[in-house]
Simulated assay, not measured.
Amino acid sequence: MTHHQLTDEARPLLTPVRQLTLRFSGTRRGARLARRFAVQQFTEWTGLPYDSDAARAVALVTAELASNAVRHGSLPGRDFRLTLLLLPHCFRVEVTDTRPERLPPSVTAQPADETSGRGLLLVEAYADRWGSTVRDAYTKTVWAEARLRPTGS
């Protein structure tokens, strides 16, 4: 469970087995549809059931990244992009929004009386790796990877 800030030079080579990208409206409904779509594709591509731990992790991570894109990374009238990659050893979720200047904050424990700000703690807990990338002046991508098989398998 590590967080990485990657530049284009440091970005690992990703050779996806499968890849799919869709745009969703920058609304709560768009975030909800992105989560449902990600889980559907995950189960279709991997053959793992909807109620598997891995599918739940994909649902939670996608929901948080999409929700953050809508809440913190969207400009009026702009969509966000969801990219799903099935890699040889993991499933990668990428959410690209239109606010490159708003990078995800460092993950720290929130005071018990705070009503928000815990979402990235969940991403940290459920993703094996996650981070953000800014490749141009108009967008940023926040990504998370979930292992397909438990360690040691």
Score class of each variant (00 low, 15 high):
R11P: 00
H4I: 12
T62Y: 02
L84Y: 01
R35H: 06
P16A: 06
G117F: 04
T27D: 09
S25M: 10
A34R: 09
L120M: 10
R28K: 07
S106A: 10
S116W: 05
D79W: 09
L13M: 10
T15W: 06
T62V: 02
Q41K: 15
L120C: 01
G47M: 02
P49S: 11
A127C: 12
A10L: 11
P111L: 01
R23S: 13
R23I: 06
T115I: 14
P16N: 06
E9W: 05
E114C: 08
D53T: 07
T96F: 04
N68P: 14
T96E: 15
F91I: 01
R118M: 05
P88W: 05
D113V: 12
G30Y: 04
E101L: 09
Q5L: 14
S116Q: 08
L48K: 10
A54Y: 03
M1H: 13
L82G: 01
P88H: 11
A109K: 06
S106E: 13
A127H: 10
L22H: 07
R28L: 13
L22M: 05
G26P: 03
E101Q: 15
A112D: 14
V17E: 08
N68E: 10
D128V: 03
L33W: 08
S74F: 00
P16C: 02
A34P: 11
F80M: 04
A125I: 01
T21N: 09
V17W: 04
L103P: 02
R99V: 12
T43C: 13
F80I: 04
Q5I: 14
R92E: 10
Q41V: 14
L82H: 00
V58C: 02
G26F: 08
A59I: 05
R78I: 04
A59F: 04
E44K: 09
W45I: 04
R81P: 01
Q5W: 14
L87N: 04
A10S: 15
G47V: 01
R11K: 07
D51G: 02
L103D: 08
